[in-house]
């Protein structure tokens, strides 16, 4: 099983680096993952991550992308409340990269 080291603690992740146990997540881990991808986490990134975690705690699943972009629109306005902007934040895809940083399992299915 692959692992991720952070502040002396070892975290189990799957083949693609998604945290095995989402409850083990902490903000530092997101930073480590982003750093590996060469990504600097801005406030907008964090908004996405926080929203994902909140939603996941409530529904045990990541939200529909559209729900996420709408949330961004509320805070940053229409021109940033869209999928394009999400991809600017998370080039590998919001569902796949942002979910990973947020400690959520990877969405499955025809997506």
């Amino acid at each position: 099983m692959p692992t991720l080291e952070f502040e002396g603690k070892t975290y189990e992740v799957d083949e693609e680096g998604y945290l095995m146990d989402w409850s083990q997540w902490n903000e530092g881990l997101a930073g480590v993952m982003a750093k590996e991808d060469g990504l600097e986490l801005t406030e907008a990134h964090w908004d996405v991550i926080r929203f994902l975690r909140e939603y996941f705690e409530k529904y045990q699943i990541a939200p529909m992308i559209k729900i996420l972009t709408k949330e961004l629109a509320k805070k940053y306005g229409k021109e940033k409340g869209n999928t394009k902007y999400l991809y600017e934040l998370y080039p590998a895809g919001p569902a796949k990269q942002a979910c990973r940083y947020a400690g959520l399992p990877k969405p499955t299915g025809c997506v």
């Binding site: 529909m64 992308i65 559209k66 569902a95 299915g109 025809c110 997506v111």
Partner: peptide, 8 residues
């Protein structure tokens, strides 16, 4: 498909 409830 449940993708209709999730993806664009």
């Amino acid at each position: 498909p449940s993708a209709d409830f999730f993806a664009e």
